[in-house]
């Protein structure tokens, strides 16, 4: 069981080593909760019934003058616990962005690419960035894009509209693309893309009002019919929490409370993630 969407922003051990991470969490990513020992993160996974978590950085060097975790810091955290799966992030405007990704995968052992068009301020269908996407496809790693609205200050939702991802899914069918947060509020538009492009997945890490149980039900069973996930997109939906904006346990309980069948939940919580990570071929 894997949480495909976490940000290790409040890990005390890393803040002790890199004090600026506290400011970055507070002012750039905009999460104001108290830092916790690494053990709390692992207990969160335990309470949620999950074994592993994908750790996501965001390279905001160009737009914010800092990195919301560097690739090296993600790799360092992964070395502290084998329950973590590290992703890289790259400033897509860098001329050497494909090479940076190749080094993160080849040298640091990172297993995917995280891009956040809102806070990195780029339109994902801009052709200038396709060499980076092509490198990810060549390396066999998925790209997880932030999609939809974001709480990060100054980051605009316009960069993350689902229509901005169609060229990527269409032109690079060998590349696995994940649109995070169900691309909320554009769930229907994101689902339409996923229905057409089998290389495009969505993750569940959406919480924008109410509580996780009620919001997830609204987004996944009212904005679109629940049968969409059960029948059409069961192999293209990944469980993600967006921890620490929401506790892993609360999102896990919310997704389980939807009433998806056991085999569909198995895909959502485990098999789909393992397939994207190259761990298992799912029929």
């Amino acid at each position: 069981m894997i949480d495909f969407h976490t940000h290790p922003l409040l890990v005390e051990e890393m803040i002790a080593r890199y004090p600026d991470l506290a400011r970055i969490a507070r002012d750039v990513f905009y999460i104001r909760n108290r830092a916790q020992p690494l053990e709390t993160f692992l207990l969160e996974l335990d309470v949620a019934g999950l074994e592993r978590a994908v750790l996501l950085p965001i390279d905001t060097t160009r737009t914010r003058g800092c990195q919301i975790y560097s690739n090296e810091q993600i790799a360092e955290l992964c070395r502290m616990c084998d329950r973590f799966i590290g992703f890289a992030s790259v400033d897509p405007y860098r001329p050497d962005a494909p090479e940076v990704l190749a080094r993160a995968v080849g040298d640091l052992g990172l297993r995917g690419l995280k891009l956040a068009p809102g806070i990195q301020e780029f339109y994902p269908d801009d052709r200038r960035f396709f060499p980076l996407y092509e490198k990810a496809a060549e390396l066999g790693v998925p790209i997880l894009f932030h999609a939809g609205m974001t709480w990060e200050p100054g980051a605009q939702a316009k960069y993350g509209h689902p229509s901005r991802f169609e060229d990527i899914a269409h032109d690079l069918p060998q590349l696995n693309v994940v649109l995070a947060h169900l691309a909320w509020p554009w769930v229907l538009e994101a689902a339409a893309l996923a229905a057409k492009y089998p290389n495009l997945c969505l993750d569940t890490s959406a919480l924008y009002f109410d509580n996780p149980r009620d919001f997830v039900r609204f987004a996944m069973a009212e904005q679109v019919p629940l049968t969409l996930w059960e029948r059409s997109l069961r192999k293209q939906l990944l469980f993600g929490s967006n921890y620490p904006r929401v506790e892993v346990k609360n999102m896990a309980w919310a997704v389980r409370a939807l009433g998806l069948s056991d085999d569909c939940q198995r895909l959502v919580f485990a098999d789909n993630a393992r397939r994207l990570l190259g761990e298992e071929q799912v029929a």
Partner: peptide, 9 residues
């Protein structure tokens, strides 16, 4: 609801 003092709901 969203609490901007915390950056989360």
């Amino acid at each position: 609801r969203y609490l901007d003092i915390d950056g989360r709901l």
